[in-house]
């Protein structure tokens, strides 16, 4: 099963993408629990233990509880999804993820009718994460999506890259990938998923709400207060990276624009 399995409109998603090489994808990361440098996650995540792993599913669900990773993966079809990744720092990559739609997991646990949002929490293990001794963010790292965003067929729970298990620096053993939003929305190394009525606490919005909104959809028309989002540096495009114009919703507008009909995306950035 590839992108074709999610219906006609999904085929309009960028499909002629050439993925970055594995070295770049695994050595150019933002994962502040391991340090703020781009190579810190690769250098300092070696002690991070990701097996055994479980995710606690809580809140407005029919079957709350702590699910072992094996039980989550059981019966899930792992697909390859080649997605653009657009960082809020105005660089981009293309990543060949392996994973399954988040909706499959949400359907498995049974979302109750009052739930409007999904909150994600990243592991917090100070002994294995040298970056958390610095309070750059209010740990643990938390992110969230509106329920319809979370249920969207493009929203992935990723477990691998290039057919290999995720490395620690990429959010092992399981993470979210939301390709039409800035990279920081895609929380890594997930330990808790909560279905709730209120908009979740999100770490970057908490750190600086003027710069990082809850939605954080890729949007070339809305500047980050400190830099333009109109273009992006394409990592791996030669000795001197080229710039390309950033696309609305990172090129996934045909699939996701309807989620935001009637919303002022300048206000809801």
């Amino acid at each position: 099963l590839g992108l074709g399995s999610i219906g006609g409109t999904a085929m309009a998603a960028p499909s002629d993408l050439t993925p970055n090489d594995y070295e770049a994808i695994t050595h150019y990361n933002n994962f502040y629990e391991f340090g703020v440098g781009k190579e810190d996650p690769a250098d300092y995540s070696g002690k991070f233990v990701t097996s055994p792993w479980s995710i606690e599913v809580a809140g407005l669900v029919d079957k709350p509880g702590t699910y072992a990773l094996e039980d989550i993966l059981k019966g899930k079809q792992i697909e390859e999804r080649i997605y653009r990744l657009r960082c809020v720092e105005a660089w981009s990559m293309v990543i060949p993820w392996n994973g399954f739609p988040l909706s499959a997991l949400l359907n498995q646990v049974g979302v109750q009718s009052g739930a409007k949002y999904v909150a994600f929490e990243t592991a917090l293990k100070p002994d294995e994460m040298p970056g958390v001794s610095r309070r750059v963010l209010d740990w643990p790292y938390r992110e969230g999506l509106r329920l319809d965003e979370a249920m969207h067929p493009l929203t992935l729970m990723a477990t691998g890259i290039y057919g290999k298990d995720l490395l620690n620096q990429n959010g092992a053993p399981i993470r979210v990938v939301v390709p039409w939003k800035y990279g920081f929305k895609s929380a890594k190394s997930i330990v808790r998923i909560t279905l709730q009525e209120d908009q979740p606490f999100t770490s970057w919005k908490d750190a600086n709400y003027r710069e990082y909104g809850f939605y954080s959809n890729v949007n070339p028309q809305v500047s980050h207060p400190r830099w333009s989002q109109a273009t992006e540096r394409v990592i791996g495009s030669g000795l001197i990276p080229k710039r390309r114009e950033t696309e609305m919703f990172n090129g996934y507008g045909d699939e996701v624009a309807s989620l935001y009909t009637g919303m002022d995306l300048k206000k809801n950035y």
């Binding site: 070295e23 050595h27 781009k38 190579e39 540096r233 990592i235 000795l239 001197i240 990276p241």
Partner: peptide, 13 residues
């Protein structure tokens, strides 16, 4: 380093 590919994934930065 740039021409040797020693400057990492994002040599310009």
């Amino acid at each position: 380093g740039l021409f040797q590919g020693r400057l990492g994934v994002d040599p310009v930065k």
